[in-house]
Simulated assay, not measured.
Amino acid sequence: MKTKKFGNSNLETNPIIFGGNVFGWTLDEKESFKLLDELFEKGYRTIDTADVYSRWAEGNQGGESEAILGKWMKERGVRDQISLHTKVGADMGQGHNDISKSYILKAAEDSLNRLQTDYIDLYYTHWDDNKTPVEETLAAYQKLINDGKVNHIGASNLSPKRLKESLKAAEEQSLPKYEVFQQQYNLVERNDFEGAIHDICVENGVGVSTYFSLASGFLTGKYRKEEDFQGKERKGFVEKYLNRQGLEILDTLDKISETHQVSNAAVALAWLMHRPGVTAPIASATKSSQLQAFDEALNLNLSDEEMSKLNEVSKK
């Protein structure tokens, strides 16, 4: 499988990144191992997780996703073949986000232990605490990099102001630079990325990964009326899209997917893969059949007309 480089860095990624938020949440350990085995067999080697995954599931404390992934890599002996991405800074029970130096250094050790590895390929600032000086956060990453525990750093969900401050501090004070930015971006949520964040990333050679790339499953087309998501884990994420524009987007996806004989998810991912500034979308799956959409997206060539139709119907 061909790989792509994030921005101006030498960090490579699959064209689609697997989202590990499902491990320990909608998939138990046995189911996670089965899916990871199939993913690996298909050639996907870039996996995104976070220390806070899957804390929101009943009975979980956080770290479940990392622990499952770490156990799988250890048992299969494949750590050196995986580009491992994880994150720090989200509320792990302390009641607030934290990206102070002391917190990051401790959290990194916790993540390394759960992942059963001695290094992280890409370590993200997950959520800003909006108070720690950016220089302090970057200094923590500098130590982790110097110690060989982190190879590259990225950021997620920072405001344009804090992202610019971080990039400026990195350049002026010889601190590590955020080489990847992760932001929500999909056909029903375009505003968070398009505009200031997109421009900052392009101007500074920062690669981009997108989360909620399928809008928590809405863009697959399986949620079209209220009863479709009743009792489902993702109800709170997708019910807001069940409106006129959301249904028009699904209708457009239906037509394009029928033309190419692929799934709606494949079209939605292909659209992202061809959007300016995007390096690779992150997408999850819970069934073997859903992984087929990844392969379909990689081989799908959307015409200019089809891209224009998707761009137009998803404008707000």
Score class of each variant (00 low, 15 high):
residue 1 M to T: 12
residue 3 T to M: 10
residue 6 F to N: 00
residue 8 N to L: 15
residue 9 S to W: 02
residue 13 T to H: 04
residue 13 T to W: 01
residue 15 P to Q: 15
residue 16 I to C: 13
residue 18 F to G: 05
residue 20 G to D: 04
residue 31 E to V: 08
residue 31 E to F: 13
residue 32 S to E: 12
residue 32 S to M: 15
residue 37 D to Q: 12
residue 43 G to T: 09
residue 45 R to I: 14
residue 46 T to N: 08
residue 50 A to H: 03
residue 51 D to R: 14
residue 53 Y to F: 15
residue 56 W to S: 09
residue 59 G to L: 05
residue 60 N to W: 06
residue 61 Q to M: 11
residue 67 A to F: 05
residue 67 A to N: 12
residue 68 I to C: 06
residue 69 L to G: 02
residue 70 G to Y: 00
residue 70 G to M: 03
residue 77 G to A: 11
residue 79 R to I: 02
residue 89 G to H: 11
residue 90 A to S: 11
residue 90 A to D: 08
residue 92 M to Q: 15
residue 94 Q to H: 06
residue 96 H to A: 15
residue 96 H to Y: 13
residue 98 D to F: 05
residue 99 I to E: 06
residue 109 E to N: 10
residue 111 S to R: 05
residue 115 L to I: 10
residue 115 L to G: 00
residue 116 Q to A: 07
residue 116 Q to C: 02
residue 116 Q to N: 05
residue 118 D to Q: 15
residue 119 Y to N: 06
residue 122 L to T: 09
residue 127 W to S: 05
residue 129 D to I: 12
residue 129 D to C: 12
residue 133 P to M: 10
residue 133 P to I: 14
residue 134 V to Y: 09
residue 134 V to E: 07
residue 135 E to M: 09
residue 141 Y to F: 15
residue 142 Q to H: 10
residue 143 K to P: 00
residue 143 K to D: 09
residue 146 N to E: 15
residue 146 N to T: 02
residue 150 V to N: 03
residue 150 V to H: 05
residue 152 H to I: 03
residue 153 I to Q: 08
residue 159 S to Y: 01
residue 160 P to W: 09
residue 163 L to W: 00
residue 171 E to L: 15
residue 174 S to Y: 07
residue 175 L to K: 10
residue 182 Q to S: 04
residue 183 Q to C: 12
residue 185 Y to N: 04
residue 186 N to W: 01
residue 187 L to D: 07
residue 189 E to R: 05
residue 190 R to M: 09
residue 191 N to K: 14
residue 197 I to L: 04
residue 203 E to K: 15
residue 205 G to E: 12
residue 206 V to W: 00
residue 206 V to G: 01
residue 206 V to K: 01
residue 208 V to T: 03
residue 208 V to Q: 01
residue 210 T to W: 01
residue 214 L to F: 04
residue 214 L to S: 02
residue 216 S to Q: 03
residue 216 S to K: 00
residue 218 F to W: 02
residue 219 L to T: 09
residue 220 T to Y: 04
residue 223 Y to K: 02
residue 227 E to G: 01
residue 231 G to S: 06
residue 231 G to I: 05
residue 237 F to Y: 03
residue 238 V to S: 00
residue 240 K to V: 01
residue 244 R to I: 14
residue 248 E to L: 13
residue 248 E to P: 08
residue 249 I to M: 11
residue 256 I to P: 03
residue 259 T to E: 11
residue 260 H to P: 08
residue 260 H to R: 06
residue 263 S to G: 14
residue 263 S to H: 09
residue 269 L to Q: 04
residue 271 W to T: 07
residue 272 L to I: 09
residue 273 M to Y: 00
residue 274 H to M: 08
residue 280 A to D: 06
residue 287 K to L: 11
residue 290 Q to K: 07
residue 294 F to N: 04
residue 306 E to D: 11
residue 315 K to A: 15
